[in-house]
């Protein structure tokens, strides 16, 4: 296997690994549940896509055989990540998880839990 291929695969792997690390770091560091939800759904999905593309290139170069399983896993993760994020957010609203004190439009969370249209009365700054 040539050095160029190794370089490309390494670059993809490193990018994917750093995004995975970043997503988990965000999960640990961010202050409340709703902000924590952002890091894993976005960064980890892209990080895993990077890892999968890297391994796809590697197997294509090493065995001269197109492996397309990885594409299937990437697609599956891309479809399921927003769905599980939505379900988790719904659960958090239902359990009245405390959001950060300075979150704007906290009254909207109330109407979101009741699944009603928002009432523009208090602290929404439209």
């Amino acid at each position: 296997m040539s050095t160029t291929v190794e370089l490309i695969v390494s670059a993809f792997l490193l990018m994917g690994g750093s995004f995975v690390l970043l997503g988990s770091f965000g999960l640990l560091k961010l202050p409340d549940f709703f902000t924590r939800l952002h890091a894993p759904t976005k960064a980890t999905t892209l990080g895993l896509a990077g890892l999968l593309i890297g391994s796809m290139i590697y197997f294509f170069a090493a065995e001269q055989r197109l492996m397309v399983h990885e594409l299937l896993i990437t697609l599956f993760l891309l479809i399921t990540a927003p769905v599980s994020a939505h379900m988790l957010a719904k659960t958090a609203l239902h359990h009245q998880v405390k959001s950060l004190q300075r979150t704007q439009g906290r009254s909207l969370a109330e109407s979101a839990r009741e699944r009603q249209a928002p009432s523009f009365s208090e602290d929404t700054n439209l």
Binding site: G16, P40, T44
Partner: peptide, 19 residues
């Protein structure tokens, strides 16, 4: 602190283990 946090951590845990 809350149950949804733990589920989110589990979710991320399995995605990372795929990697």
């Amino acid at each position: 602190p809350d149950l949804p946090d733990r589920i989110l951590a589990l979710d991320t845990l399995y995605i990372n283990s795929i990697g």
